[in-house]
Design a protein around this nucleic acid. Structure first.
Lengths: 130, 130
DNA sequence: TTACTTGCAAATCGTTTGCGATATA
DNA sequence: TATATCGCAAACGATTTGCAAGTAA
């Protein structure tokens, strides 16, 4: 794995940003420092970095994927109104997979959990409509 | 809501099929009964039916969406090898959202949970390689 | 009758890929 | 220097949409 300037900047960007940006948002941010970087390069590096475990690709609802500079296991909560995504303050439920043993013929390997809700801003806006 | 022939056939197809097909698979099945139906019609009806709560759109990992003729809350388990999707034999964890209260500023509305694993067939194949 | 729905085709959107040029180790 | 990576642009696959014609209520 060759540490290119592009790869480093993408990784740093993701580690600083706490907003779980999608590929296109990463591209826009990185472009301010490296105007000639291409979107293809961003996609390629996000893939490589998540395969290395440096970042994680958030594979849940929503048509466009988000990326998280924190590679540790944790859940997220998504605003159903504005699509903002935050960390969910809840430890990983390690026991949850064990509940399936015996009742499924699958070999259970992992799980994904995501919460849905209204973020503080959207709640505010909804409230002020009344 | 106007019950067209197309809409009825799509709904019935989904209720019979236990495999959680994607839009294109629904299209292929329905096409055997109605050769002139278009893929656009399938997409439009899957959307309408899931908004009505007659079926559900499975909004989880994977780039293409799956549909379930059973509108009741339940979880799924996905084979990481062949992408087969089955119902997970586990009741809905209603208490899980309550654990977030107090620790998040979101108004929690729901959650999505999906298990990952190896289906019986893929386990078999993996085993026979040794 | 009329507004909702269809079939068709083109458009859109996120993402991936082929290629020749570039730069890291 | 060798080869992984880049920028660019075209390709891709799933999904959506505009429109004129068809049809359920």
């Amino acid at each position: 794995m060759r540490m290119t300037r592009q790869r480093r900047v993408i990784l740093e960007t993701l580690q600083e940003k706490k907003t779980h940006p999608c590929a296109d948002e990463v591209y826009e941010i990185v472009r301010q420092k490296m105007p000639r970087i291409s979107l293809g390069t961003v996609y390629r590096n996000l893939d490589i970095l998540s395969e290395l475990g440096e970042i994680q690709k958030i594979e849940l609802s929503g048509s466009l994927k988000r990326f998280d500079g924190n590679p540790a296991k944790h859940y997220h909560i998504r605003c159903i109104n504005c699509d903002r995504l935050d960390d969910a303050p809840m430890p990983s439920l390690e026991d949850i997979e064990g509940r399936l043993h015996g009742s499924t013929r699958y070999k259970v390997i992992g799980h994904r959990l995501e919460f849905m809700g209204l973020c503080p801003e959207c709640m505010e806006k909804a409230a002020s409509r009344w």
